[in-house]
């Protein structure tokens, strides 16, 4: 059965190097097979760049998770603090493993679910590991590159 959804890109974030706070962009250039222009995983300056993996080219997390963290655990996590690149709404991220989908003009492949890391707890001083388990977002490959902007539609490819 085809997966039907119609979501929205809310914000775009990159970090110039590991542990450096994220910058919010009005638009971003996604390079197929590489990453987001200027992001630490496109320039091999990320925390996990010593273990390169195609699925780290771009990472997504949904706004619903941030709302749930506040509701269920009283934790404020801003979009920039997630250290994911794209914050989205109305996209079934956990169902997109092994599937292709579009963000605006760009085509992504859902490689694997993101696994939370204690590193983020230390970096932010917030207890996120448990609360983010099973809803930590999606790690993706860039199949077709292009420019994306907040407000772009996210739909099955």
């Amino acid at each position: 059965m085809p997966l039907i959804f119609d979501g929205e890109l809310l914000s775009i974030h990159i970090a110039e190097a590991a542990s450096v706070e994220m910058e919010t962009l009005a638009e971003a250039n996604l390079i197929a097979g590489v990453g987001i222009e200027g992001d630490r995983y496109a320039t091999a300056k990320g925390t996990y760049s010593n273990k390169p993996h195609a699925d780290r080219q771009v990472t997504l997390i949904d706004e619903e998770t941030l709302t749930a963290l506040k509701r269920d655990h009283g934790i404020d996590l801003s979009p920039e603090e997630t250290r994911r690149n794209l914050v989205v709404r109305d996209v079934p991220l956990n169902n997109l493993v092994g599937r292709e989908f579009r963000v605006g003009s760009v085509r992504l492949y859902g490689g694997r679910l993101n696994v939370p890391c204690k590193y983020l707890d230390d970096l932010l001083g917030k207890p996120l590991f448990g609360p983010l388990t099973n809803r930590s977002g999606l790690n993706c490959r860039i199949i077709e590159g292009g420019t994306i902007r907040p407000g772009d539609r996210i739909v099955p490819a």
């Binding site: 110039e16 190097a17 542990s19 450096v20 706070e21 603090e81 230390d122 970096l123 932010l124 001083g125």
Partner: peptide, 8 residues
């Protein structure tokens, strides 16, 4: 909080 800020 050990997030790094770029400073000049």
């Amino acid at each position: 909080m050990r997030v790094l800020m770029p400073v000049t």
